[in-house]
Design a protein around this nucleic acid. Structure first.
Length: 288
DNA sequence: TTTAATGT
């Protein structure tokens, strides 16, 4: 009888020790996670990682972290709600061929590259292949082909108007300012019930796409575009300028959560195209 | 030197 007691105690103490080791491991892993997150905020995002204004099922998202860009992924929309990346000037761009589209197992829903077949929509990159490849290299270029970086885009938007905008960003704005922070993503109809069945496979179809360009610094500049699915593709780019406030109202997101209130007012309330030289490039022809 | 993507 007396001999059983220590064995039981021993079993319990070894369980407790294992629990302690597990708890310690979780604490260290969580700490590392937050440390990485903070480091990424500083290296990949200007004035904080985009977040929601109010916590609702439609605005909730989690951050998928790639080497050169962040993705705010929504398991409800089955879309990226935003992607965020930095661009800088590169002297001698040398990029590889376009890799193939790839499933991303971090998304809750299985989205295969074939799921857009016959839908009438393109697999539209949010973080663009060319710019990311030039600035962030081959491995990150492959990451832009993950299905978590795609949203259904009409071909006339994706291959024409949107392509012209991406080309102007890389060839005109990046050389002009040296560094740019870009946030881009989809806009959905105001009424979720109208849109809930409008899907390509599992992926909800947006009605428009936005792109925000920021020149970081003490006197930041910003320019924002909102382009609907139904464009012809040869419109002037400056016909689609909007304020960041309008985009925040349409998306429910807060793009620069760490920006002080006064600075946010100055940057986000109005369209301010002065200094960008947009008129000179707004009508450049597309490549395709 | 090169920015997209589908369908065959």
């Amino acid at each position: 009888m007396a001999a059983r007691q220590p064995r039981v105690t021993h079993r319990w103490s070894s369980k407790l020790r294992r629990l302690g080791i597990t708890a310690l491991f979780v604490a260290v892993a969580t700490g590392l996670w937050h440390f990485q997150e903070r480091e990424l905020r500083d290296t990949l995002s200007w004035q904080g990682v985009t977040t929601w204004q109010a916590l609702t099922p439609l605005s909730f998202h989690r951050v998928l972290r790639n080497d050169g860009f962040l993705v705010g992924w929504s398991d409800v929309r089955v879309n990226p709600l935003w992607v965020s990346y930095l661009l800088r000037e590169i002297d001698d761009p040398n990029i590889g061929p376009r890799p193939g589209f790839q499933r991303d197992w971090r998304t809750l829903w299985p989205i295969s590259p074939e799921s857009y077949l016959g839908s009438g929509y393109d697999r539209g990159h949010l973080a663009p292949n060319y710019a990311i490849a030039v600035v962030h290299g081959r491995a990150t270029q492959r990451d832009t082909f993950l299905m978590s970086n795609m949203s259904p885009q009409r071909p006339d938007l994706n291959r024409r108007l949107w392509q012209r905008l991406e080309e102007v960003v890389m060839d005109h704005f990046v050389p002009r300012f040296g560094t740019l922070q870009v946030i881009t993503g989809p806009v959905f109809p105001a009424s979720f019930s109208d849109n809930v069945l409008n899907r390509v496979g599992l992926v909800e179809v947006p009605e428009a796409f936005y792109k925000i360009l920021v020149v970081p610094g003490d006197a930041p500049r910003a320019l924002a575009f909102l382009m609907p699915q139904g464009v012809a593709g040869d419109e002037p780019l400056d016909a689609f300028l909007v304020s960041i406030d309008e985009l925040e109202a349409r998306t429910g997101l807060n793009f620069f959560p760490r920006l002080p209130e006064a600075a946010a007012m100055a940057l986000e309330a109005e369209v301010q195209p002065a200094g960008w030289g947009l008129e000179a490039v707004a009508r450049l022809p597309g490549r395709f």
